[in-house]
């Protein structure tokens, strides 16, 4: 746990009178898969949004690879190598899957002239390889908007990989995906982590998924950090069980 890639310290975020995140402190070590769970409305997505820069935090600090990012904007943070996916899919609907992939090449260090560059064969190769990886290769020339919701989620995941991220923040990657396909997705997430060395920080509602996937899990409830531990510890934790069952 020495190499902390993402460090969130004392982050508080209020919307009007509602405290969505209250003094949250957590750490994501490099190369690990960390889960974030909690009942609906516990502030998970708000925390993600704070981390990737959709809104400024009221208090606290967020550091990515030692760099303070709590005042940076979405684009800057994305270019540092931290990419998030969405609960509701966001893909480019009127472009083909291949175009969705190729446009997602890393935009780090892109000079003015690079904006007008052509795509090189290795970019197409990589895009096809990643589409193959998520199982969308045969559909690579279809318009992304014509894919089913589950396929769009897979495409979004592949697009995120295309940017060569250092860390992925996945917001409910299995929500809306056909249950028979979930095992395949878990395996892909694990391979992305193991083979490509990408740190994963995952919000997930499906307990079976997160217990299989994550090495350690944070649990939020009512905007506060409730528990932290290995999947086994979390499963045993009485406060977590109470939170999910609605007891206080």
């Amino acid at each position: 746990m020495n190499d902390i890639q993402l460090a969130v310290e004392g982050v508080t975020k209020r919307f009007g009178g509602v405290v969505a995140n209250d003094n949250i402190t957590l750490a994501v070590p490099r190369g690990h898969i960390v889960g974030l769970i909690g009942p609906n409305g516990s502030g998970k997505t708000t925390l993600f949004n704070s981390i990737v820069g959709y809104h400024p935090v009221d208090e606290g600090s967020i550091q990515f690879e030692g760099l303070e990012i709590s005042r940076k904007r979405v684009i800057e943070i994305a270019r540092l190598g931290m990419i998030r996916t969405f609960q509701q899919t966001h893909i480019y609907g009127k472009m083909t899957c291949m175009e969705n992939m190729t446009v997602s090449v890393p935009h780090r260090n892109e000079g003015f002239a690079r904006m007008f560059a052509r795509f090189t064969p290795d970019i197409f190769e990589k895009a096809e390889h990643l589409l193959e990886f998520v199982g969308l290769y045969p559909k690579r020339y279809l318009l992304a908007g014509d894919l089913s919701f589950g396929q769009q989620k897979l495409l979004e995941f592949a697009m995120a990989l295309m940017t060569e991220p250092k860390m992925l923040l996945l917001d409910e990657p299995t929500a809306g995906i056909n249950p028979t396909l979930i095992n395949g997705l878990i395996e892909r997430l694990q391979r992305a982590n193991a083979d490509l060395g990408i740190t994963l920080f995952v919000i997930e509602h499906n307990m079976r998924v997160i217990m299989n996937l994550a090495e350690s899990i944070y649990c939020l409830a009512h905007g506060q950090l409730l528990a932290f531990g290995t999947p086994e510890e979390i499963q045993q934790d009485q406060t977590v069980i109470d939170a999910y069952l609605g007891a206080h």
Partner: peptide, 19 residues
């Protein structure tokens, strides 16, 4: 492709780091 991406979903394009 970048300006097409802006047309289709500008927020996504920002989240992917496109300038």
């Amino acid at each position: 492709l970048a300006i097409n991406a802006i047309r289709d979903d500008e927020d996504k394009a920002e989240a992917m780091g496109i300038r």
